[in-house]
Design a protein around this nucleic acid. Structure first.
Lengths: 227, 227
DNA sequence: ACCTGAACACCGTTCAAGT
DNA sequence: ACCTGAACACCGTTCAAGT
């Protein structure tokens, strides 16, 4: 239908508009079928091509997942740089979580997508690290803190999704536990089976933030050159 | 060979000694072939049976993974209860990480194994939650903190393993990044490509511990009934 | 009680060949 | 440049049948 994909209007020709369609179709398939239903074969079906054809556009499923991860976080916005670093990081964390919740099993895609490669992924890393460097963390600490924050959000939504997908999960059967063998566990059965996502997410965010605050305070105390 | 598996000596007959062999074989296979090489078919081969036979012993691969997870953390020891809670949690975290590092891709098994079910898994949860309750955290906070710590260790070793398996990973190509588009990322290229596991693990542990200390202090300040 | 044969319904990926 | 046919080398799981 459009054999050359040329724009006669001289606008810079969109690089691989086909790839964009593939990623959009993959996201739509993810929403319908979940991570386990996302296969090269059914993605090809949805695009009206054969599975083998996908390999002309992407190196393999791994690359597809990276492209999807990059697209999933596309709606994320940069936080106001004039805010305190804690507020910037919390805004990024909340935003990240919302982006993941916006697609079915998105956290599994992110967890499987490997090192950040796409521009949106790189931009997210950039924003987190910028806030940490601005705050006064040294280079190593900024990198460590950045991956801590990233891992926290992905892990949280992974668990959040798992809990939501299996309602009244029988596997979370902490109810019948022997109070003699597992006194703490048995006493916490109610709390273990409940998942109050918002409150729980804020808890972890608060722990990370105040832990980082403490780290920063110690660093500054031992290094009077910092502002 | 041992059709009834009876102990004439009156000792309580070992419940499912066969299951134990299966889990041991699965762990040996994991060590040799990694998580992706751990299939029901090759596990059956190793045991000298057919894949279908495994389903008489376990409900499915998911249950096998749970059993493996339980076995992987079997060497973990309870921390000295007289230690401060911070030291107990740090000991548990280090011990947990070591147990995971002891088997190839063990963190992937733990991440895939779902809610804790086996006795060792339950005991690990029990120990973490006991330390937190002893410290004075309320019930909800203890549960939240417990899963935070657990997730941190698993996520860390997941990343640690990924980094070790792919030496000089070309995917972690932060070197050629444009300093104009990604100034922080480009400036941190060295730190992003290095993975100093011990130091990095301690960093996260310290952030979590001091964040939890702060939380506890705030709680106690607002609740004079606590010791 | 425990195991096998045989199948079902899939996977990701490669590659020569087509247009 | 892009797609297909056909295959390769696998998966997890079920179930009637064997012993």
């Amino acid at each position: 239908m459009n054999p050359h994909n040329l724009h006669p209007s001289g606008a810079k020709s969109a690089p691989s508009l086909d790839l964009e369609q593939i990623v959009q179709a993959a996201l739509a398939l993810l929403d319908e079928a979940g991570f386990d239903g996302l296969t090269m074969r059914s993605l090809a079906d949805r695009l009206g091509i054969k599975a083998a054809s996908l390999y002309w556009h992407v190196r393999g499923k791994q690359e597809l997942l990276s492209l999807m991860a990059n697209e999933i976080i596309a709606p994320m916005r940069a936080p106001d740089r004039s805010l305190p670093w804690q507020a910037q990081l919390e805004a990024l964390g909340r935003d990240y979580r919302q982006a993941l919740l916006h697609h079915h099993d998105a956290a599994r895609v992110l967890a499987a997508s490997g090192a950040p490669t796409g521009p949106n992924m790189l931009r997210l890393s950039e924003l987190v690290l910028r806030a940490l460097l601005d705050a006064g963390f040294d280079r190593k600490d900024a990198v460590y803190a950045g991956s801590l924050i990233n891992d926290y959000v992905v892990m949280f939504v992974l668990e959040e999704t798992r809990r939501a997908e299996v309602p009244a999960e029988p596997a979370y059967g902490f109810a019948g536990l022997s109070p003699d063998e597992y006194p703490s566990l048995a006493g916490l059965a109610d709390e273990l089976m409940t998942f109050e996502a918002e409150e729980r997410f804020r808890f972890g965010a608060e722990i990370l933030t105040s832990g980082l605050e403490r780290r920063l305070a110690k660093r500054k105390a031992s290094d009077p050159l910092q502002s």
